[in-house]
Amino acid sequence: MATATQTAVELCISLTSVYALWLGVINVAKNCGVVKALSRKTKKLTKKLFGVDDDKICDNLSLNLSANLLGVGNASTPPAIVATKQMDKGDGKMTKGMAMLFVTNACGLQFLPTTTTGILASLGSANPTSIILPCFLTSLTTTLVGILLVSLLYGDKK
């Protein structure tokens, strides 16, 4: 059993190195305005996708999507929580926008699965980047299926 906790310690040390690299790089990109630029570009798409007209809600939604795509997990959650609250009318009913936000986040589409490639590299994989493409294709497909299902089941009412 102590080998299990030792694995945990070793894994945390490996993760520290993965996090240090990616949180560093991602923060450089974030401070250059990459997340903001991407969310500005995706705003029209967001409006259509979520069936939301309000500009403030749209800002939060596209911020959440962009941060997810870039793998900035800790930057994607706060705008999502705020957006969910803004879309809540207080009647206990789930709107299309809320369902869409929940499902797109559950599918976790991102350009680079940094944690996974990092663990692979730290455990001595010969080719840690080999899983990037299958990962991307898989979550792209499930995200599209999720969007389709939400549109079908929540489509009639906005």
Binding site: A106, P113, T115, I131, C135
Partner: peptide, 8 residues
């Protein structure tokens, strides 16, 4: 890896 990396 793919199963872990593709969903939340």
């Amino acid at each position: 890896c793919v199963v872990y990396g593709t969903s939340e």
